[in-house]
Design a protein around this nucleic acid. Structure first.
Lengths: 152, 152
DNA sequence: TTGAATCCTACAAATTTGGTGGGATTAAGT
DNA sequence: ACTTAATCCCACCAAATTTGTAGGATTCAA
C-alpha cells in the first residue's frame, strides 16, 4: 500500500504542478527547465486539506532527494527542480516509501540478499521479479505531468 | 512489501507441494483433485526453519479461507484443497496480507471509496489502477505449482 | 490411555506509521 | 531595524500494525 505520506505528496505535487501550469504549457518541451516560482505550503494545503506540518516534513525529504527546490523567507516556497514530465512516480515513491519491490531480494534500488535462498532456483524470487517488472513498467513511465493532466 | 506471514506461507506451501509431488505428477491434470495426505507442520518446519507456532496461525487462516484442509490428531496435518495449479498466488496473498492494490479505491476485492476525490478525473486513481492490473497480470497467473516447480 | 497433532484465543514485544511541537534560520517589504 | 512569512531541523509521541508467544482445549490413531 501507498503510505499516507506518499498519498499526501502526490496530492500536493499535483497541486504544485497545476499552480505552475500556465508557465509550463508555454515552455512546450523546452529544456533545460528553468526553476519555477516558489509556491508556499499553505497555498497547497488550501486545495487539498492536510496538516501543513506533516507536508513540511514530506517536502523536506523530496527536497533532499533533489526532486524539489525551495526558497526560504517571505515569498518563498517549493518548486520542482525538473519539468514534471521528467519526474516518474517511481522516483517519488522510492524517496518516501522506500523499495517498490515486494521483497528485498528482488529490489533494484534497495537490494538485500535473503539468507538461505538460492535466487537461481527460488520460485518466489522469479515470480516477484516479474511482479516488480510489471509495476515498474507503469511507475517508471508515468510522471507528475501525467498525474496533474489527468482530469483535463 | 510481502509480510513475513506471506513469505513464511509461501515457503511452507512450497514444501507442502513438494511433499505431495509424486502423487500430483501421477494425476496429470485429472480433476476433481482428491485430497492429499495430511502433512504435519513440524515436518514442513524442518525444511524451512521458522516458528511452528506462527506457522500454525498462518495455516489456520489459509484453512478458514478454504485453501487448505486439515486433519486433527495423530497422523493429522494440512493438505491443499485444490490442485496447486489452481491456487494463484494472488489468492494466498489476499488472505494473509489483505488487498494487493496500492490504494483502497483501486482494489477489486477490498474496495473503499476515497472521500473528496472524483475517481473519473483523479490522476492517481487511473495510474494506480494500471499498476494493480500489471500486478494482477502476474499474480493471478502464477500458482503454487509454478512456485514449487521453479528450481527443477 | 497416551501421544501427536490441530484448534483457539488472548496477549506481548517490536516496529512502523502518522503525525505534533518548538524553535532556528532566512529573506522580503516597509 | 523591524515585522512578517516562509522553510529548516530535530526530537518526540501516540496509535496502529506486525510478528510473534503462551497455554490450554480438542481430536484422533494406535
Amino acid at each position: 500500500m501507498l503510505s499516507k505520506k506518499a498519498q499526501y505528496a502526490f496530492r500536493a505535487l499535483t497541486a504544485l504542478v497545476e499552480e505552475d501550469m500556465p508557465r509550463l504549457q508555454s515552455l512546450e518541451g523546452q529544456s533545460p527547465h528553468d526553476p519555477a516560482v516558489p509556491v508556499p505550503l499553505n497555498l497547497l494545503v488550501q486545495k487539498h486539506p492536510m496538516s501543513v506540518k506533516f507536508l513540511e516534513t514530506i517536502f523536506l525529504e523530496l527536497r533532499k532527494a533533489g526532486i524539489l527546490g525551495s526558497k526560504k523567507g517571505k515569498g518563498g516556497g517549493y518548486y520542482l527542480m525538473r519539468h514534471p514530465e521528467d519526474v516518474p512516480l517511481a522516483q517519488v515513491m522510492r524517496v518516501l516509501d522506500g523499495p517498490i519491490a515486494q521483497l528485498p531480494c528482488v529490489s533494484l534500488n534497495f537490494y538485500e540478499k535473503c539468507e538461505g535462498c538460492n535466487e537461481q532456483q527460488c520460485g518466489l524470487h522469479r515470480i516477484m521479479s516479474d511482479v516488480r517488472d510489471a509495476q515498474l513498467g507503469v511507475l517508471e513511465n508515468r510522471s507528475l505531468w501525467d498525474l496533474a493532466r489527468a482530469g483535463r
